[in-house]
Design a protein around this nucleic acid. Sequence first.
DNA 1: CTCGGTGCAAAATGTTTGCAAGTAC
DNA 2: GTACTTGCAAACATTTTGCACCGAG
Lengths: 138, 138
Amino acid sequence: MDLFRQKCKEYNLKTTPQRVVIYNEIRNSKEHPCTDNMFKKVRRIFPDISFDTVNRTLLTFTEIGILNVVEGYGGPKRFDPDLNNHHHFWCIRCNNIIDLYNKSYDNMKIVKGVQKGFTVLRKKVILEGICNKCNRRD
Amino acid sequence: MDLFRQKCKEYNLKTTPQRVVIYNEIRNSKEHPCTDNMFKKVRRIFPDISFDTVNRTLLTFTEIGILNVVEGYGGPKRFDPDLNNHHHFWCIRCNNIIDLYNKSYDNMKIVKGVQKGFTVLRKKVILEGICNKCNRRD
DNA sequence: CTCGGTGCAAAATGTTTGCAAGTAC
DNA sequence: GTACTTGCAAACATTTTGCACCGAG
């Protein structure tokens, strides 16, 4: 919440009730929701909010760095409230994303080809496959 | 081309002229085109093809494993003709994807949390940042 | 000849924009 | 009071679906 207020001040954003609710909901989220998921969640608390506001707010949050967008395959955007360095396992069947925390992944070196002239902001490992639940279901 | 014919046989797909053209174009592509890029490319060779066929064919190709879809952030799907193990640098400004080849990335271990019950089909490293061209442009 | 593939048009899905009215500061 | 935000509606972009016709095997 401090981060939120601080960033709002920094970027001249007003702390509207809508933004507060969206911030709290995504912070408390353990998943990687898409905009529509967030809209449904937020509307339980703030029934008159528009989809539009949720969408714009999520994009604004990624711009000011209190949220990340995570990799997907062309479907709806998905957001990640965890700003710590972490990695993902992606189930290609149920589309679930599982967070992975691993020091050796974090410490991975940046390959030479990318160093000159490039700025690397984030580096992450993505594992793709079938999760335990989907495997069990077969 | 052999891979193409073999896979078509395997999955009972007909080798239509449309599919042949699409296959050749994506194979010769050094980029990571989206469906619309492919449509434009293919239409130069096969002017009467529909967008629809290109889209369906690309999806079919990913299903039979002669193409991969690559990670994105909710925009149009992008395809990758390179089936070898490789990694990506992603410019968040110009949206360009640069292929990275690196043995130590290839040899990365799979973390323990994912081993029981999970099937890992692919693993890759994604670097996100600003590419040399975009940096120069500032 | 037959079944899968194509092209078209329409629908569905997801995102963005323009603007009048509202509200945080 | 003013500038930023919101909600709405319409536009846009991308993908998917249904179906009649076509053509590769």
